[in-house]
């Protein structure tokens, strides 16, 4: 059966329907999960979509991190299931300490909303599994706080372990080492600032986001069966 993806909704999330549509386009099943839910049921993978959870009060993701659903998301992450944070979702995952580092305000204090070119750096994540390093993808960004930062030793470690999964070809926000997306040590928790769901149709200017979401779904399907896990 097609993998079932939970798409988390906080008050202020606004990309959940776009994510559901893109996932369904790829043949997955998707279910919206309200932030007050504690049990994710039979969900195979989680997406924390973009938006402005809790109005970005204090810092993006700072309040959302304490939502009841985040306990279940952390449990899934610990169990090795795919967990993807997009834009504000990436900010939530860093605040929840499921990914290292933080997203600071963009260089030049500018909101950026434009198509970016990404380069696959590492295939050891559920979002880039099976993709050729060096592959370039056109995926848009839309954020004010997407400037990835972490202590130098953390950046070194991410690079050494192949956990920088996507880089910007032309850095739009000042992000350290051109980082667009990173993953956890196990590769199953991934955060990125660009919006793959907004690159899911020629009408939107690119279908390259489906390449990433397709890899996520293959990973989710693989984690369903022990045979998939061992391969």
């Amino acid at each position: 059966m097609a993998p079932l993806v939970g798409v988390v909704v906080f008050p202020g999330t606004n990309c959940e329907h776009d994510v559901v549509e893109a996932l369904e386009l790829l043949g997955a099943r998707a279910r919206l999960v309200w932030h007050a839910e504690r049990d994710l049921g039979d969900i195979d993978a989680v997406v924390v979509p973009g938006g402005f959870a809790h109005g970005d009060a204090l810092r993006p993701g700072a309040i959302a991190r304490f939502a009841p659903v985040m306990g279940a998301v952390a449990d899934m992450a610990a169990a090795g299931a795919p967990v993807l944070g997009i834009c504000n979702g990436f900010q939530v995952l860093t605040e929840a300490h499921l990914l290292p580092g933080a997203l600071q305000k963009n260089r030049g204090l500018s909101f950026v909303c434009r198509m970016t070119e990404l380069e696959v750096v590492s295939e050891r994540s559920v979002l880039t599994a099976g993709l050729q390093p060096g592959l370039r993808l056109a995926v848009p960004v839309n954020h004010f706080e997407g400037n990835y930062t972490a202590p130098p030793e953390v950046l070194d470690q991410l690079e050494a372990e192949g956990r920088v999964v996507l880089r910007y070809v032309a850095n739009p926000n000042g992000s350290a080492r051109d980082i667009a997306g990173i993953c956890s040590p196990g590769g199953n928790v991934v955060g990125l600032m660009p919006h793959p769901e907004r690159a899911s149709s020629e009408l939107l200017g690119s279908t390259d986001g489906l390449v990433l979401l397709g890899a996520l779904l293959r990973s989710a399907g693989a984690s369903l069966s022990p045979a998939g896990l061992s391969s």
Partner: peptide, 8 residues
């Protein structure tokens, strides 16, 4: 825990 993000 909440008011500051120790990374930044």
């Amino acid at each position: 825990r909440l008011l500051a993000n120790p990374v930044m």
